[in-house]
Computed example of a mutant assay.
Amino acid sequence: MASTSPPCVVKAYYDQFQTDFSMFLKYRSQELVTGGRMVLTLLGRRSDDPTSKECCYIWELLAMALSDMVSEGFIEEEKLNSFNIPKYTPCPAELKTEVEKEGSFAIDRLEVSEVNWNANDDKLCPSDELKDGGYNVAKCMRAVAEPILASHFGKTIMDEVFRRYREIIADRM
């Protein structure tokens, strides 16, 4: 899903999120003792717009790296066109709606916090390489995305994918 996705794609991702999150809540409720509580931390967005820059842009930059590799013959275009990352980043209102609709839990507190993508940009970081925001973001995203990318495109190109991704991020920051 990206900022250029048609409304039907956005709806399909949201519908899948609703199904998956409802099932998640149902099964977690069966695991808890009566009166038990659950703390849930997940990636989301502040904006009501599911295609906002805060949740899609970082993935769009990864798509740019992959597209560049298609144009240079490293990846087959068909492989890229058949690839999807099954991710939906809900906003607080969507989470609240799904929790209430599923009915197993009550929300005591719902907080939104922000991740500093360039967490090592302070004086405590001695390495110049680690101060490179492109490096930090690419490493963080690699930890999340590499398994699904490698299973679809193969492990051999991962270093090159994330090298290019780092450069794109550094350029955009």
Rank of each mutant, 00 (worst) to 15 (best):
C140K: 00
K96A: 12
Y88T: 07
N116R: 13
T34E: 13
I107V: 14
I85D: 08
M1Y: 09
R172V: 11
W117R: 01
S29H: 08
L32Y: 06
T41E: 15
I169A: 04
L95N: 09
N116S: 11
A12E: 07
V161C: 02
P6M: 11
G35M: 12
K11D: 10
A93N: 09
E94Y: 07
V99L: 07
W117K: 00
T19A: 11
P90W: 05
P86E: 13
E98K: 15
D15K: 14
P7D: 07
L66C: 05
M38R: 12
D48L: 15
A138S: 04
L149M: 00
M158Y: 01
A138C: 01
K11E: 11
R166M: 01
V115W: 07
E54M: 12
A145S: 14
T41I: 15
S113V: 15
Y88R: 12
F24Y: 14
E77R: 08
S67Q: 15
C91Q: 09
I157M: 12
G133C: 05
V99M: 08
I157D: 05
E167N: 10
N120S: 05
W59R: 02
E77S: 14
Q18W: 06
R109A: 04
T89N: 10
K131W: 00
E114D: 07
Y57N: 09
R172T: 09
Y57I: 05
Y14E: 13
F17D: 00
I58E: 02
L95W: 08
P92V: 06
K123G: 05
S104L: 01
D171K: 15
I75V: 08
F21N: 00
G134L: 01
L25A: 03
Y27K: 08
L124P: 01
V33N: 10
R45Q: 10
W59P: 01
M64R: 15
A65C: 01
D108G: 05
K139N: 02
G36Q: 10
L61I: 03
N118C: 09
M64G: 04
Y27R: 14
P92F: 04
K79T: 10
L80W: 03
E160T: 09
E60L: 06
G36K: 15
P7I: 03
D132F: 00
T51N: 11
S151I: 02
L149V: 00
E114S: 11
L43R: 15
I107F: 01
R45D: 08
G36N: 08
F21G: 03
N116G: 04
L42R: 11
K26H: 14
F74I: 11
S3A: 13
F83L: 12
N116C: 09
G35P: 04
S82N: 14
D122Y: 04
R166S: 01
L130D: 07
Y135R: 03
S113D: 06
R37C: 10
